[in-house]
Write a protein that binds this DNA or RNA. Sequence first.
DNA 1: ATAGCTGCAAAACCTTTGCAATCAA
DNA 2: TTGATTGCAAAGGTTTTGCAGCTAT
Lengths: 135, 135
Amino acid sequence: MSTQNLREAGLKVTLPRLRVLEVLEASEHRHLSAEDVYKRLIDADSEVGLATVYRVLTQFEAAGLVSRRHFDGGQALFELNDDDDHSHIVCVKSGHVEEFNDPMIEKRLAEIAKEKGYKMSDHTIVIYGERVTDK
Amino acid sequence: MSTQNLREAGLKVTLPRLRVLEVLEASEHRHLSAEDVYKRLIDADSEVGLATVYRVLTQFEAAGLVSRRHFDGGQALFELNDDDDHSHIVCVKSGHVEEFNDPMIEKRLAEIAKEKGYKMSDHTIVIYGERVTDK
DNA sequence: ATAGCTGCAAAACCTTTGCAATCAA
DNA sequence: TTGATTGCAAAGGTTTTGCAGCTAT
């Protein structure tokens, strides 16, 4: 569980780190800002400073536990890394988000990175569109 | 030329706007931060305030002349809009940005959007990686 | 014991905004 | 002329950092 993840990441198992990890795991939304995490900790009566949240998230990122995303600017969003990587399709009207995964595209991106002389570490694909079918 | 572009965008033709547009057009790098633009203006003895650079770039964005990108954190990068759409590959070490275009992926994304019941209006693809070959 | 972690407040960044002066049309 | 635009400085929002005290190992 969480304790194990922290140990493997070479991080001391401390309350703030466990709490932040729990928040990320329990969240219904996959992408949270540092402020989001902080607010949830406060709501859960976990006294953790905002600066610590930032530090912990940065350490998690370095340890490969989370990814930091900069979708629109402003604030960064943090996302728990699980094994399957996925892309997003976003409805520009409703903000509804779905995920998809296309091996063909993944494969092609890897090729392109290689062609350009890069070692791909990550990638982002976002489709913006209007949902035409009702739910 | 530049004057024309501004008129078409419904913007008064002012010196700061012309200068900013010139900088974007003359730049060897396609992606510039507001600060980059500002520095080049200073170097060219064009007295334009940084706040004005931000305002002008924001107006250009609204007018469809440039796009604002948020590749990694920190600062936004501005890119002159020309007709061909392209994707980006960003070096996570240096921040260097290159472009690429892959029709196969474009096609596949359109298909995916359709399958999911969306009418695609736009999309973003960013590959993050480490540049392994020197240039 | 001690290297690492935390909270707080202050600092550092990037970007936006209020305002009086200036400028394009 | 007159509404739009500009420069400056000040404010805003997000993220990082210095430091003294605290904690996991």
